[in-house]
């Protein structure tokens, strides 16, 4: 059965704050589909991504999220991840003292242990082979495996490390929050090819972006525009092209009344 992500009338804000950032989001993503989410700065895209992943900094005040028929709101972030949800962060944090290799091995082992508490986890040689394969595919220097995660990584290196995690963990639905920002043209191609190669009936993708260029590689089935914490427009690939041409003015004009400043 497909692991559909269903978001219904989602309202959320920063934990302890009055004002909602997300103001009634509706969105359904099926495995195998690619959705693009666009929208001006500050419209709530990253907030949506974080709320979906279960970031405790945000509080959901209304609405529902189901993932493969299960209530996501009942789960902590780690359970959501093990259920098959993945978020490539817009601003990945550095994890001092934890190497990329150790981190990914622990993440894989957490999955194996959740399935079978007796599991001893992936063997080291098997893991090394897996990791090196994925790193080669993403044209990453194998030295990265021994570096502390994201510490001192350049912007582009961080984004690539996020995709490495995506490729290793093989989720059902992946949210890419501006993974294309800060990448040079070659890096963008490598990352996009990486995502492209993972795409298929098993993976649903939500690409949050400001640019058409990544969508040239990872072709979306649906494009949505978020404005003021609401998805105000949805359409096909032509919607992204129109935004690229015209910007957001028409969106603002059309929806100003619906969305108070």
């Amino acid at each position: 059965m497909g692991a559909t992500l269903e978001i219904r009338n989602l309202w959320a804000g920063v934990e302890g704050e009055e004002d909602a950032i997300l103001r009634g989001v509706d969105l359904t993503i099926q495995q195998g589909e690619v959705h693009a989410l666009m929208g001006p700065n500050g419209s709530g895209k990253s907030t949506l991504a974080n709320v979906l992943m279960g970031n405790p900094a945000y509080e959901v005040t209304e609405g529902e999220i189901f993932f493969g028929g299960e209530d996501l709101m009942e789960m902590e972030a780690d359970e959501r991840s093990r259920a098959g949800l993945f978020l490539a962060f817009q601003y990945p944090v550095a994890i001092p003292g934890v190497t990329v290799a150790n981190f990914l091995r622990q993440a894989l082992n957490a999955r194996l242990k959740a399935e079978d508490p007796e599991s001893k986890g992936i063997s080291v040689p098997q893991f090394v082979r897996l990791l090196q394969g994925k790193m080669s595919q993403l044209k990453m220097d194998h030295n990265f495996a021994g570096r502390y995660l994201n510490e001192g990584f350049s912007g582009g290196e961080k984004k690539r490390a996020e995709i490495l995690q995506l490729a290793t963990l093989e989720p059902k639905i992946a949210i890419l929050d501006e993974t294309d920002s800060g990448l040079d043209i070659d890096a963008l191609r490598v990352v996009a090819e990486g995502v492209e190669s993972l795409k298929g009936p098993e993976l649903g993708v939500l690409v949050i972006t400001h640019y058409q260029r990544i969508l040239n590689h990872v072709a979306p089935d649906f494009v949505h525009v978020m404005y003021g914490g609401v998805i105000v427009e949805s359409g096909g690939p032509e919607l992204a092209l129109r935004l690229e041409d015209e910007g957001y003015d028409w969106v603002r004009e059309k929806h100003e009344i619906a969305v108070p400043a």
């Binding site: 970031n55 972030a77 959501r80 991840s81 990914l104 622990q106 993440a107 957490a110 995690q165």
Partner: peptide, 19 residues
């Protein structure tokens, strides 16, 4: 940082240990 580790499926106690 806890959230980052947990978002990869690592349990809370394990994430604390790693940090």
């Amino acid at each position: 940082l806890m959230f980052y580790l947990m978002s990869r499926g690592i349990t809370r106690p394990q994430a604390q240990l790693m940090l």
